[in-house]
Simulated assay, not measured.
Amino acid sequence: MPSTIRYNKKFDQLTDEEKALFEINKKSIADFVEQSSSVSDVNYATRNAHAKTYAVAHGEFKINPGIPEELQQFFDKDKYDLMIRFSNAHPQVGKNRKEIPAYGFAVKIKDENGDLLANYPMVNFPLFPINSVSTFLQLFTAVNRFFVKKWNNVFSLTAQVIKAAPYFFTPSMIKNVFRFIGKRNDFLLAFDYYSVGAYRMGEYVMKIKLQPQSVKKNFGRKMSMQKALESYFESNDYTADVMIQLCYDLNDQPINKLNQEWKNSPFIKVGEVKMMKGCLLDPRSCETELLSFNPFESKSIFHPVGKIQKLRDEAYKVSLQTRRKINKLLHG
């Protein structure tokens, strides 16, 4: 295997300005979650992103016996247990509106004792449009405040959208947006899913792609997505290839430019995700709603890498802690 870029803490370091903006953002996350039952007209506190759970399922991660020798140290078992959450990226749980086809495929990997190895929240779009941490935090804060305060914050939100707009117009972003538009009506399980940001694999730095082997893109088109998933797993199994790319050159595989695709890094198949028919759990249970897929709860050798990724740790914690507090009050 060619020489790779090794993980360095400098990839993750935030400036003092970014840290200050993050404190403001965390407050906006807590405010959103506290008001989220009203925002979504539900009887529980929701996440402030990927609020709607379509389904939760058990699965398996089967390791490819032909993985490169250098990577075998990270897989000491033939298979691992998975908990998987399917979601919609919108911060509001929609009931009667047309949903945006922005889906989440969050994976929790456990060992034979049920202990957590890694969380990987993945989405069906390979890029993240904003590279500037400050710009992202200001936009994310404005979005949270808009949902809580509505029109009182519309001018601030508009200003932040305009500020962030140039990041959406890289060649990679434009190409993938048009590709996404062409697939917008596809079944959730027919999409590829991506880690978007980078992750550690020991001292290696990688990105992850999940590629389904055979799912009809038109399945359940006349159903709601939740009903389509339930119908699919009544009589079908699901298998997807787990592919990774490694970082060899920061020019070709940038860690903190999430609106650029990695190039000149071949995909390596490390295994398969398998879900058998009948694998779905109750998506409406309180235990399901309190599931956390914070990637920083993973073992340190599988932690996220990069500045935007670094924000996930405390953001997930604030959201989860606030949800738990509110939901415990609501449900006794």
Rank of each mutant, 00 (worst) to 15 (best):
F22R: 10
Y193M: 06
L210Q: 09
N64M: 10
M83G: 07
A142C: 07
F233K: 05
H331L: 11
M225K: 12
N327H: 13
V154E: 02
Q35I: 02
A20M: 09
N124P: 09
S37W: 08
L71F: 14
Q321I: 01
I268S: 11
Q13M: 03
N256C: 04
L116C: 08
E314H: 07
L127P: 10
K110H: 04
I268M: 07
F125N: 08
P129R: 09
S265V: 08
D76M: 09
P129C: 05
L14Y: 04
M206V: 07
Y120E: 07
Y103C: 13
V270Y: 14
D76C: 05
L21D: 07
K95D: 06
M1L: 09
P101A: 09
I308Q: 12
G202C: 04
S231E: 15
A49P: 00
V215H: 08
S285P: 08
R47H: 08
G278P: 07
V39R: 02
E203F: 06
S36N: 12
V33C: 00
K209N: 11
K175R: 12
N96W: 00
T322P: 01
N327I: 10
D31A: 12
N131K: 09
L127Y: 04
Y120S: 07
N256A: 05
H50E: 03
K310P: 03
Q13L: 05
N294L: 00
